[in-house]
């Protein structure tokens, strides 16, 4: 027969099977998912979207009290609150991307089990809706930044601040990539979702969110920070925003390579999983 088939559903799996045309066709779904994620989180709350702002502020206040006022950790000339806020806002974006993506198959199995759409839409929507949250939180950071400057603080951003979007992109890639890898493994072995909670907590401390690098420098745990791409990301974002911190060319290249490889690996594994996860979840 000389029939032309539109497409074939087959048991054979290609290693890379990414249909960009199809994802583009579903772009409206992506936007609607983003909208859903953003507006439904705080429905039926009095303060509504204000919670997006309150969360990082409270966290920063607590960190400042515990680590800087009580434990007396030196933040190297940067106002402790601003130091923590910068770290918390960036960290939150990465964390939300990671945890949001990591339980994607488990959380959406009802809908994934009923209709087909390109599965990758779901993690993409999480990264995008978190980007909006991140934008709101960043604005608050800027407001406090300006306040501290008028109060006579000497912190200033440096010219590398132009690269800030790249830092955000790297965080997104890392969160998305790691999240996709974990989400695929969670479909079979649920143990991982328990481990993830502890893992994220631990990762926060070795990612210099609340602790400056100087605390680790001569420590036997220094390697945990030296080979942690998130530590570089947080430190670098603080460096460009507040003009203070340690950076290195090795750190930049290492982080970039790491993020891109994790992302590609994530896509690969996610792609392999999405076809049959519904049988094993």
């Amino acid at each position: 027969m000389n029939d032309k088939w539109l497409y074939t559903i087959s048991s054979k799996k290609k290693l890379i099977d990414f249909n960009f045309k199809e994802i583009w066709q579903y772009r409206d779904l992506l936007l609607l998912f983003v909208k859903r994620d953003v507006i439904t989180v705080y429905k039926q709350t009095v303060l509504g979207p204000l919670w997006y702002v309150i969360q990082p502020l409270f966290t920063s206040v607590i960190f400042t009290l515990v680590f800087n006022t009580i434990a007396n950790i030196d933040t190297g000339g940067i106002p402790p609150f601003l130091f923590n806020l910068a770290g918390v806002v960036s960290w939150n974006y990465f964390k939300e991307c990671l945890t949001g993506t990591a339980d994607i198959f488990k959380k959406n199995q009802a809908i994934f089990g009923k209709v087909y759409f390109p599965r990758v839409i779901m993690p993409l929507s999480i990264v995008l809706s978190n980007l909006i949250k991140f934008g709101i939180q960043l604005t608050i950071f800027v407001v406090f930044y300006l306040y501290f400057i008028t109060q006579g603080s000497t912190v200033r951003p440096n010219m590398f601040v132009l690269f800030f979007p790249v830092i955000v992109l790297v965080m997104g890639l890392l969160g998305l990539g790691l999240g996709m890898i974990i989400s695929s493994m969670v479909t079979r072995y649920r143990d991982l979702s328990f481990l993830l909670t502890f893992g994220v907590q631990l990762l926060m401390y070795i990612s210099l969110v609340t602790l400056p690098y100087s605390l680790f420098a001569d420590n036997s745990f220094a390697w945990a920070v030296d080979y942690n791409p998130m530590a570089y990301v947080i430190e670098f974002s603080r460096y460009v925003l507040l003009g203070e911190g340690t950076t290195s060319l090795f750190g930049v290249v290492y982080t970039l390579v790491f993020a891109v490889s994790v992302f590609l690996l994530g896509i690969l594994i996610f792609n392999k999983t999405e076809k049959s996860f519904i049988d094993t979840i």
Binding site: W5, L6, I9, S11, K13, F112, V115, Y116, K275, I278
Partner: peptide
């Protein structure tokens, strides 16, 4: 396309 077949093929126009 919610789940894949173990073997076999489906062709559609």
């Amino acid at each position: 396309k919610v789940t894949g077949p173990t073997t076999g093929e489906i062709k559609t126009k």
